[in-house]
Nucleic acid binder design. Structure first.
Lengths: 220, 220
DNA sequence: CGTTGTTGTTTGTGATCACAGACTACAGAC
DNA sequence: GTCTGTAGTCTGTGATCACAAACAACAACG
């Protein structure tokens, strides 16, 4: 148990969270090899819970099984673009549902998150988390665990590539402006405007990610 | 090994397919309990591959983990309706992509499937498979493994409840008529018409499933 | 020098064992 | 009669061992 303690719930679930986090934060790069032993040793557990975690990650599409090797899933440009399109449709559906059900308390919460987001352009990791919270908090209002689950699944698929995107601070400012516009549409209950803004927001993000992806040849 | 042989690939994957099939065909009812031992004994394997299969099924949302028990996921009416909406958005996206890329060979294949579908209104199980093939064959043309994967995930979530729907032969005939209309739109490359027909098709199906669901109180 | 056969190591897979937590049921006390 | 405490069993979890397939390195042969 050198790297860190693992305590409650189930080891398998904890390993899942850890490895998933390593992948989505870019700590484990797409295409990189994974072995049961290395993860098990790093986390100080046996290989059994690691295997369970890998199965979950496999179903999430975050890892790929080869004949005898497990690797972090690597996406082509075409796949990333597809995933952003899928994400757009799902988020538009969530926006549609959420805008009908959202309360003023929800609006206040979201505005608070937005303020924090503005204040966090300096802190990469914090901004990333808050960005997630902002979107999640709004889509939570759609009141569909399944839709949220699907959105988060797509999200985590492209997240490893977002880490690259998130390295530039200019992107943060641009995104914050767009977030603020989206928020105004939410507050005004203007679904049409929100759908357009969401589409725009994702297009811009996708374009950034893809351009970064083209710059450094993927290791797949 | 009383029930059947398990041979190639990996036991875990095979168990996954078997249990998944049992769930989606309605052989294992929503809400029903699952135990590692019972499945392991039934398939003549140890519990290890069953655990891996359960993890996959968990990520698919087909089984739920309780404190100490595993059960087949049971959906509320609201959840079923949500899932059909999600499915609609995804299938509309797939239709949009597919209609641009579909070739005349694809069209011929699909028409063939449609003919077989017409001839299979008597055979419940065969019709179910062909229905899947029909939709899948078209959405394959969208050329996005991810989108197809998501569609199939939603599909398998609601499939246990489709088994009930599929018990009535009238539904088959109505569905076949709708399939034929959708096919004509595909052949004519008429996206707008196809989107409307798809929406209608899913609405009708959803309504049938929900009405059946309301009739017999779910055992969750 | 290139190719092929062989050996040794690595790695995922499946089975088995030990364990802890939770549900069941039976028995005793009020 | 009802409630409660306790023993027993069931079930998922984690660790460990045995195994087979595949990749890598090296040596032998053409």
């Amino acid at each position: 148990m050198q790297s860190g303690h693992i305590e409650v719930t189930s080891l398998g679930r904890e390993v899942y969270r850890r490895v998933r986090s390593m992948i989505t934060t870019g700590q484990l790069r797409p295409g990189g090899p994974l072995t049961l032993r290395s993860i098990a040793d790093e986390l100080g557990v046996s290989t059994t819970p690691v295997r369970e975690a890998f199965r979950l990650l496999q179903a999430d599409g975050l890892v790929q099984y080869g004949r005898r090797s497990v690797t972090v899933t690597s996406l082509s440009v075409h796949e990333v673009e597809s995933l952003f399109q899928i994400r757009l449709r799902l988020e538009q559906l969530a926006a549609q549902w959420a805008i009908d059900k959202i309360t003023s308390a929800d609006v206040a919460d979201i505005e608070d998150l937005l303020d924090q987001l503005d204040a966090s352009v300096q802190d990469q990791e914090r901004w990333r988390i808050l960005n997630q919270d902002f979107h999640r908090r709004f889509y939570d209002c759609a009141d569909s665990v399944h839709l949220l689950e699907y959105i988060e699944k797509v999200w985590s698929s492209v997240e490893p590539y977002m880490a690259i995107y998130a390295s530039s601070m200019e992107n943060f400012h641009a995104a914050n402006v767009e977030h603020r516009q989206m928020f105004e549409a939410i507050r005004a209950r203007d679904l049409e405007a929100l759908l357009v803004l969401t589409a725009h927001h994702l297009e811009v993000t996708a374009a950034q990610v893809v351009s970064q992806l083209l710059r450094e040849p993927s290791d797949s």
